[in-house]
């Protein structure tokens, strides 16, 4: 068990585990670091109380699905940008105000196969998002004049 807790604390993704009542039972060092909320302060607290921002369709629907069907739910940064609002500082803050996150909602089952809690994995994908944004801009905007190019015009026309 000691080995597992070391993994949990040193891994470079955010790990949160909540029970069926949405109370936090696990909050790893990564989460503590970016959220500036210590594990001791959030354990046992309702996750919506700690982060009211989570009360949105994609998260609520995803959790219901995990608890009802025991499947794995992926919340893409492309669609949702982020679940937990972690303000960026430094170089990336020029592109995005908040850390871009891809999140997994994963069922944790007991020995009877019953889903008893839910693990949220939070991946920081800000760097990829910046690259992608830059690439898309290159392909839609004329490099010299900075206005939308013909491809964008034609695409808009179709829509």
């Amino acid at each position: 068990m000691k080995g597992y807790s070391q993994i949990l604390e040193s891994i470079n993704i955010g790990i949160v585990i909540i029970d069926k009542e949405f109370n936090i039972v696990e909050w790893n060092a990564w989460m503590a670091n970016y959220s500036e909320k210590r594990e001791d302060d959030v354990l046992g607290e309702n996750i919506y109380k700690v982060f009211p921002e989570l009360d949105r369709v994609c998260f609520n629907r995803g959790c219901k699905s995990v608890f009802s069907f025991g499947n794995l739910v992926f919340l893409s940064s492309k669609l949702h940008k982020f679940l937990f609002p972690f303000k960026l500082s430094g170089a990336y803050s020029a592109s995005f105000e908040y850390m871009q996150q891809s999140c997994y909602l994963i069922p944790i089952k007991d020995e009877n196969g019953e889903t008893t809690s839910l693990m949220i994995n939070v991946h920081d994908v800000t760097e990829n998002a910046i690259l992608e944004k830059h690439l898309k801009e290159l392909s839609y905007v004329d490099g010299l004049t900075g206005v939308y190019n013909r491809r964008t015009f034609e695409r808009r026309l179709v829509e």
Binding site: R61, N71, L79, K136, T152
Partner: peptide, 22 residues
Amino acid sequence: VFIDVEREVLSEVGNILIGACI
């Protein structure tokens, strides 16, 4: 204009529909 919203939504909802039945 940059994001393929349709694909992402289909993926997310499709995952739930399939997961439910299976």
